[in-house]
Write a protein that binds this DNA or RNA. Sequence first.
RNA 1: UGGGGCGUCGCCAAGUGGCAAGGCAGCGGGUUUUGAUCCCGCCAUUCGGAGGUUCGAAUCCUCCCGCCCCAGCCA
Length: 517
Amino acid sequence: MSVEPRSNFLRTQIQADLESARVSALVTRFPPEPNGYLHLGHAKSISVNFGLAEQFGGHCHLRFDDTNPEKESQEFIDSIQEDVRWLGYQWQGEVRYASAYFNQLYEWAMYLIDQRLAYVCDLSAEEARDYRGTLTEPGRNSPFRERSVDESRDLFARMRQGEFAEGARVLRAKIDMGAANMNLRDPILYRIRHASHHQTGTEWPIYPTYDFAHGQEDAIEGITHSICTLEFEDHRPLYEWFVEHLPVPHTPRQIEFARLNTSYTITSKRKLKQLVDEEVVIGWDDPRLPTIAGLRRRGYPAAAIRHFCEEVGTSRSDSTADVAMLESAVRDHLNQSAPRRMCVMKPLRVTLTNLPDTLLLDVRNHPADLDFGSRQLSMGAELFIDQDDFREEANKHFKRLVLGKRVRLRGGLVIEADRCDKDAEGEVTQVFARCVTSVPGADPEDGLKPKGVIHWVSADEAVPATIRRYDRLFGVPEPAREQDLMAAVNPHSLIVIDTAMIEPGLVNATPEAGVSV
RNA sequence: UGGGGCGUCGCCAAGUGGCAAGGCAGCGGGUUUUGAUCCCGCCAUUCGGAGGUUCGAAUCCUCCCGCCCCAGCCA
């Protein structure tokens, strides 16, 4: 169930870079900030980065972009690693951390100050915003822009020593306050944060911004293609500015692709958190969530998620993939990998009036693949079928059990319903049926083959169980566009059926997969 | 109305001047001990629109239209 790598602009570009010997071997990276759980959108990025490395015989690093301690934690570092491994990928070497490069980044910041390309600015956040200008008007130079190299060096060193309060000063690059690209209007390189960092503790009172860190991290690690999402496109000139003006050991290249959106779900961290906080779902690994942990609990195979990411393609146009594509990939994989079992949701007792002895059946675990083997199931005179699988009378379209008609019990005999009992409300409480075959799997001798096959469980062996049926969390295709997210929640996304009866072998099942009626 | 991007079938998406792949969804039909699977067939004279260049354009040029991103000391 693998998918042939399809042509896309990334593969075309990398192929060209390899052929022109611009790079000798591909090195990519998946660089999450450890500030939340991974979701389907991350799976796409993981698939792109690790997949490309795999295809071109290169390497992919896992790097935590941990430049903002206030939002991050070890819990996320652990869960992210678990999710990447579960998806089936292995990063090259040890896990990397942006924080491991803090010393180098600090030295490079000093280097820029020496080059008169960076300065310490004392403007408050509000003032800086005012000086920055707007989308249509240029900004104004900070009054601290021409501060001497010595003074900036001294101030920056003291920022690093923890001498100043948060927000008191920042280090900025000296580029162009009139640039049409806002990112070039003297961007902030370092800010003061008196926070404890999960990796470096209280060693650093200042932290580099994403812009000042990312390209340099890529350069340090020898990343050849730094693949990110479209919203960073405007940052590329800045990314290149740092790589160009700093004595970095390598020249990485940033390429952007469109992030993955999937219909009927959301991947916004803020909105996912809202669902968890307001208990619309039960935790970050709720099977209705598009988090990797949720998808895993839902029984989605990692291979199916990879398949979906490949099949949906990689381009630069904003799009929303139909969740049906994901579901199709999941069905494809499950169809091949899931052993089959039986259960009934709403049990209806069936008594076989002419069954001489309890039969011991050998039932196959997969309809097409013999390698799945079989299991033993006993079929006595008392069994349960699903209430929905029986009607006193029905038209041609109903292929299940009807009074006076036949049906095959999956893996067992063909039976014919003779009569049924009903309660005061007229609800059928029990069906009396007759076996019209005596050999499992055989067709009736009179040639009247049943039209349908239904699930059943033996009354002796069946085990009561609670079944949770999950459906799409939202009732609209693009919940992210809804003004009122909560109003778009599908009220029937979780249906708990506590009357179910399952075959005995299912008791200790993990999120493997059975098949229901 | 500043800058940067994107517009190919209902949803994704290949295609990079030579005559519109594929997947998902949908619709017919067949097989079937899961109304599943599987199999067969159908599904863009047309590529946001209008001009132009060319023997020839989704691909090149011009203008227009629509959508997305950017004014965090977030990433």
